[in-house]
Amino acid sequence: MKYRSNLPDELENSLRQRVGMGGTFPVPEGYFESFNERLKSRMSESTDRKPHSHKQIYLLGGFAAAAAVLVGVLFLSQPTVNTIKVNDNQDYTYHDHLAESYYSYLVYTTSERNLINTIDSGNPSRNPIIPFERSNSNENLDPGEIVDYLYYNNGNVYSIMDWQ
């Protein structure tokens, strides 16, 4: 299989062909024409804003302290085991978030050589796209290359997590 550095563009083009720009967000008529006037009055309001007096600050401090105590009581009254509500949407984003953090960590903190060796050793049945000689050279890889490599070798990035 040949290495493809323009994968994101290909995916983007495919998406554009299927759904185009995807609808519009309607803007009230005359909105931009009247914007400057409304901005002007907002700016004069913000210049007129007065700083809090000492009395107000003490009151705010009192409210903040009361809120902190309330939150603390509520927190302590909860069970200590976290529960995760399972539904498709939540699962989707929760795992995406985890995978992305981990993925970024791998791509940007691990040397390319270690990254590729780790992946290859984790799944020896697959043929590496990047030749062995290259993965052992000191040549720097473009992050885009790594992304393509991971994509074509793994199908999805979540499986990388299982290999560590």
């Binding site: 994968l7 994101p8 983007e12 995406d96 970024s104 940007y108 992050p143 992304v147």
Partner: peptide, 15 residues
């Protein structure tokens, strides 16, 4: 690089 990776993932998820 991080942006490319992020965008790539975003497009894949949307697809």
């Amino acid at each position: 690089g991080a942006l490319k990776a992020s965008y790539h993932l975003a497009v894949k998820k949307i697809e």
